[in-house]
Design a protein around this nucleic acid. Structure first.
Lengths: 200, 200
DNA sequence: ACTTTTACTGACCATTTAGTCAAACCATTT
DNA sequence: AAATGGTTTGACTAAATGGTCAGTAAAAGT
């Protein structure tokens, strides 16, 4: 996978940065070339068209995201530990601008999901993993679809929306930073508690 | 406020529609003119520039959103009823594409929030309302900032992200629709339960 | 030494797009 | 019926932008 030349890497990094902040329509080939420190002609030499380059970036970003949310190693680790790890990993991913980029581009052009539909796994492993635990009687029954959506929402939205939250809570920069640093643990505690008690 | 001519209304409706789906960079003045069924020259006659028209739409959309999230009438209704109403209203707003539009444009140009910072109330009324109830001993103590963020996240993200959720849960259209129709009630029940029991 | 291939670029082209303007249109007033 | 003033538009312009191409330089192959 990583049989890329230095230049190709520089271009992909630059393109990712520019596409994620400006979106497809806002991105400029010249800006990507500048960011990658090459000429615009070189950019077209490596990736024929803007469309082409965009698809490459979008597909990779989308894959990263889908892998993140559907990966759930079935090793021997206790589910509580696994869940905490997952949440940390999820928050790390969200600190990039990738998710907003994905959502925005899908909104602009829903067909971007069609190609995905074929590749994707039928059901996130997360859900079947916990359903198995429940059926084995090792956990109180919960609606795992609800838990799954709660998990994602509580992780993703506060970061997507961070600036507006700070505005509407009226917190200063320091307080808000402290709050957001503690936040992942809060989410983990809540969900683990819900899973232990059962949530219908 | 509503001393607008027919044409101005048509333009604003068209502009909102186009900006919300395409974003500032993706939107075309010609497309807005077509949607409003007037000429591009007329469009510029009413609103000098694209920038101008965009600011008008962005400000209105942002105001709608901030009003929604910071309004919390201090009437005599029981907090439980109020919360259920709020959640329904929030979901209705989210069915438009407004929120993703706001988040995307702020991401593109964070300065869009600077002008807002002056106008906004220091603290969402929601938070102080519940803090008052708690101090009056009418409710178990919770961290209201956490509740506030949970409320928003659980409402907003599943709708922003609906298409991807459907993909990763593997639900068919019908099942997913049923699920999403029940979802607001699920959120309301959960939050009311959390507030009654107290959430730290 | 020479040819070929690969990486790269400046200069250019074609199209798109925001914005302008003079003229046409139309309702109201004089 | 002529003048007035607000509204509307086709035709145009200037700038931005994606993309091309001939040519250079250097590395690789022979």
């Amino acid at each position: 996978m990583s049989n890329l030349t230095e230049t190709e890497k520089k271009i992909l990094d630059a393109a990712k940065k520019v596409f994620e902040t400006q979106g497809y329509s806002g991105a400029r080939m010249q800006q990507i070339a500048d960011e990658a420190e090459i000429s615009k002609a070189s950019l077209h030499y490596y990736f024929r068209s803007k469309e082409n380059l965009f698809e490459r970036i979008f597909d990779e970003t989308m894959s990263d995201f889908m892998n993140l949310v559907s990966t759930w190693n079935d090793d021997s680790e206790h589910w509580e530990i696994k869940l905490r790890h997952f949440i940390i990993e999820f928050f790390d991913f969200l600190k990039t601008k990738s998710l907003l980029f994905i959502l925005g581009e899908i909104n602009r052009n829903p067909e971007l999901l069609l190609s995905r539909r074929k590749k994707s796994k039928p059901k996130a492993k997360f859900i079947s993993y916990f359903e198995n635990l429940q059926e084995a009687g090792k956990m109180k029954p919960s609606n795992m679809y609800v838990i799954y959506i709660f998990l994602h929402s509580l992780c993703a939205y506060p970061i997507l929306n961070a600036r507006i939250f700070q505005l509407s809570t009226g917190m200063n920069n320091h307080d808000f930073e402290v709050f957001m640093n503690n936040y992942p643990k809060t989410v983990a505690d809540l969900l683990i508690n819900a899973l232990k008690k059962g949530l219908k």
